[in-house]
Simulated assay, not measured.
Amino acid sequence: MPRATPVVGLVTSWPWTKREVAAGTLTRERAAERVESYVYGNVLVLAVVAAADSTTVQNGQAVLLVVGTAVSTFVAHLLAVSVAHRHGGHELRSSIRDSVPIATSGSLPALVLLAGWLGWLTPTAAILVGLASIVVRFVLLGSVVSHLQGERSTWKNVLIGVGLAVAALLVAGVKLVLTH
């Protein structure tokens, strides 16, 4: 199996993902569920970070909104998964595990916004770095998918990721316009 590049290795560094990729037990369907969760969580967090301003960074509200969005979306998804797999068992546990990217989508942006709240970054810098961190995650997604499928990443994967990042920015923009 091809070795992951260091960046892709960071993105897929969850222990269960590494074990499953190495063992070849991560099915296309399960990988697709993880990618869905990854995209969904990151689009919602992107919209929240894009709505932040200097005041919400300085009073800590931006951090709380990012964490609250990631956690509440994850909990809502867990509820939906538990209803869909009401008999429980291995399938339910796998679906829950595949939903973790929703919960983790806000981790880096929340830490960056926390740095802005603590005064380590200016509010504007915190917002821009928070947005950039999410956009970079989208740009790398094509490479991550290739890695999960046991393939080498190519420039085509990066271009697909750039297209995904643009689409995510548009979706987040629509969400901002309609909900703020």
Rank of each mutant, 00 (worst) to 15 (best):
A4Y: 06
A4F: 06
T5E: 02
V7E: 04
L10M: 12
T12S: 10
W16R: 04
K18C: 07
R19I: 01
E20P: 00
A22R: 13
A22H: 01
A23N: 04
G24Y: 02
T25R: 05
T25V: 08
R28M: 13
R28F: 12
R28N: 14
E29V: 09
E33Y: 13
R34S: 05
R34C: 10
V35Q: 03
E36R: 15
Y40K: 12
N42I: 04
N42W: 05
N42A: 11
A47F: 14
V48L: 11
A51T: 11
Q58H: 05
A62I: 15
V66G: 13
A70L: 01
V71T: 08
T73H: 06
V75W: 09
H77L: 12
L79I: 08
V81D: 09
V83G: 11
A84D: 11
A84I: 10
H85T: 13
H87K: 14
G88N: 13
G89V: 12
E91C: 09
E91G: 06
R93C: 15
R93S: 15
S94R: 06
R97D: 11
S99K: 11
V100A: 13
I102G: 12
L114Y: 04
L118G: 07
L121P: 05
L121C: 08
T124R: 11
A125K: 06
A126C: 07
G130H: 15
S133H: 03
V135N: 03
R137N: 13
G142H: 06
V145K: 15
S153W: 03
W155T: 14
V158T: 06
L159P: 09
L164C: 00
V166P: 02
V166L: 03
A168P: 00
A172S: 00
A172L: 04
A172K: 04
A172Y: 00
G173S: 00
K175W: 12
L176H: 04
V177Q: 06
V177I: 05
V177A: 06
T179Y: 08
H180G: 02
